[in-house]
């Protein structure tokens, strides 16, 4: 029997990857924590659980692995974890997306149950190939009938997380994501400007326009 291609990248524990990425994202958001993280590695685990307001440690791990597959860090640039998508979603669940908190709770539990049932292990421990395969089945709704506990179609859960991941990656940094403008850099977005001069336009077309690294709220017009 021929096995499917394995992830060509070195075998790195998903937990290790999560801790590294989670620590980096959290440190960017909470400057006071930077010293503790960089000087004392054992502080990683508490830091991972600490900054989250709504998500439990287990939910944080599963969601981290999921958004890391949606927008992974690769040769093209930063990924969702670098951009603070996890922190964006956690914060949004207290604010504008508070109605979605239960959908996250049940959906993340169902994703993990589905992974154990179909791929033989918790989602965070699957190879990236199996994680992607499982997520495709969740995306197209094929995971629904496995009885893993998705409320409605598994596709609804996938689309919700995907939508929030996009928001956290490419939205205004004011809302907690797009840390260090990682999302805008990834798509070469030149940044927000109140006016674009002809010279700006020419520079943009020549791919020489200096990026404006400012939140829309820095302009004072939107507060």
């Amino acid at each position: 029997m021929t096995l499917p291609p394995k992830d060509p990248r070195p075998a790195i524990s998903r937990r290790d990857l999560l801790k590294t990425a989670g620590a980096a994202g959290a440190a960017a958001l909470i400057p006071d924590a930077v010293g503790a993280v960089t000087e004392e590695a054992p502080a990683l685990a508490p830091l991972l659980a600490g900054p989250m307001t709504n998500l439990t440690a287990s939910e944080t791990e599963i969601l981290s692995a999921m958004v890391d597959r949606l927008i992974p860090t690769d040769e093209l640039g930063s990924g969702a974890l670098d951009a603070g998508v996890l922190q964006y979603i956690d914060r949004a669940l207290s604010e504008a997306e508070s109605d979605a908190a239960e959908a996250y709770r049940s959906g993340l539990a169902a994703l993990d149950q589905y992974s154990r049932y179909s791929r033989g292990g918790p989602f965070i421990d699957l190879s990236t190939v199996d994680q992607d395969s499982a997520l495709i089945d969740v995306q197209i709704g094929a995971a629904t009938g496995a009885g893993a506990g998705f409320v409605g179609s598994s596709a609804s859960f996938f689309n919700m997380v995907k939508s929030h991941t996009w928001q956290g990656m490419f939205g205004d940094p004011k809302y907690g994501g797009n840390v260090d403008f990682a999302g805008w850099d990834l798509i070469n977005y030149p940044g927000i400007r109140l006016a674009v001069s002809p010279e700006d336009q020419r520079s943009l077309e020549a791919d020489q326009l200096e990026r404006a690294r400012r939140s829309a709220y820095d302009f004072g017009l939107f507060e």
Binding site: T2, D130, A143, A146
Partner: peptide, 24 residues
Amino acid sequence: SPTMATGRFMPRDYSPDGRNLSPP
């Protein structure tokens, strides 16, 4: 197929109940 037979149920690994691999 080395793993399937005509008129028989296919293994769950060729479905979303398993790894959803394409069958040989």
